[in-house]
Amino acid sequence: MPPLSAIVKPTTTNHQGILTISTGPTSDNRWLHAISLALTMAVIWFLLSGHTEPLILGLGAASILSITWLALRMDLIDREGHPIHLTFRAPMFWVWLGWEIVKSNLQVMKIILYPKLPISPRMFRVPVSQKTDIGRVLYANSITLTPGTISLRVNEHDIEVHALTQAGEDGLKDGKMDRLVTNVEGEQ
């Protein structure tokens, strides 16, 4: 079989008409990503509908195939759009993040119920060590997901964070979450 990716996507033009050449592992795993996207959609479709009549199943299969075709045509399937490489490393991180969410939630709830409202809001920057966009998004979302810290602005070098207390700032600045997210991301 000839490399299909070479036929479908040798070069692309963006909306400003400038020629960009796709490089790296993106185009190699294109079909793998398309198949995994179709399988994911099939599983979600079945979980949401629960029907097993042939007609309904056929309609579901048709819609999945047409959506996968559209996604291929619109060039939406790549490492970033459907990150299967993150799936295997993520569960341990989620368990850790869940525990962090519970701890910081209890702290914020205590602050809200305390009659004098002991807050000292502050803004500061934390450095990011992730190399890809999706790693930075994961880090910024993890920061926001733990109450007490919100990511305000993200760029390639650091994240601007708004924290409710000194404890929240200290917890973020020791860099444990940064290390774990980089570990999940796994890019070198």
Partner: peptide, 24 residues
């Protein structure tokens, strides 16, 4: 979380309070 939405003094601190209800 809803009490925090009422009690907190400004927008950004209210967002922390809203986060409690949205997550835990």
């Amino acid at each position: 979380s809803a009490i925090g939405l009422i009690r907190m003094p400004d927008l950004f601190t209210r967002m922390h309070a809203a986060g409690v209800g949205d997550t835990l």
